[in-house]
């Protein structure tokens, strides 16, 4: 046991996954502090239910709480639909790294679309697992992913075609 009073399995589980999950949270909410709050909040919920969840799929529990909180927070404080106004471009003209252009475009997506992209292309989950975590249908995942990619292409045409064939 590394920390006094902390369940060793819980500590090992968190140690192994927290960095990747924090990166996921950051991609979904676009803010370092909010990402940390999201992950910490989800970890507290996991710790409260550890005895019941540990034998099941604690990672799925954690992702579910975190992603749903992320979408919910965003909705609560950022509201319903995005402006059609073009995003502000990062300064730097033609030399702007693709990453910055991509990040600016990603932040313009509605929260659920962003969550779908991160779950599918960063967490590498199937459409069915993505649907489970977000509490939506597979059809919604497909349509949200399609809409997200279309929107990304509109917002950042210099990135080119984002996908050729969608993942299954």
């Amino acid at each position: 046991m590394r920390w006094t009073g902390v369940d060793s399995d819980f500590a090992a589980f968190v140690e192994a996954r927290q960095h990747r999950l924090l990166r996921s949270a950051y991609l979904v909410c676009g803010d370092h502090h909010l990402a940390e709050d999201l992950l910490q909040g989800a970890l507290v919920k996991l710790a409260l239910r550890w005895n019941r969840v540990r034998e099941g799929d604690p990672e799925a529990f954690l992702r579910t709480v975190m992603y749903r909180d992320a979408v919910s927070w965003w909705r609560r404080f950022r509201r319903e639909q995005l402006s059609d106004a073009p995003p502000e471009r990062p300064a730097g003209g033609d030399d702007v790294p693709s990453r910055l252009v991509f990040e600016a475009a990603l932040r313009r997506l509605p929260p659920r679309q962003r969550a779908v992209l991160v779950l599918r292309y960063f967490d590498d989950l199937t459409e069915a697992r993505t649907a489970d975590i977000l509490g939506v249908t597979v059809g919604t995942v497909k349509s949200q992913a399609s809409a997200a990619l279309r929107k990304l292409r509109d917002l950042a045409p210099e990135l080119g075609e984002m996908v050729g064939k969608d993942r299954r």
Partner: peptide, 25 residues
């Protein structure tokens, strides 16, 4: 797309939340 997502989150520093979460719970 995966590569861009990886790049965009690469600077996120590793956290250490286990003890805090357990104590809060």
């Amino acid at each position: 797309l995966t590569e861009l997502l990886e790049d965009s989150s690469a600077e996120v520093a590793p956290p250490s939340f286990a003890a805090t979460a357990w104590a809060t719970a």
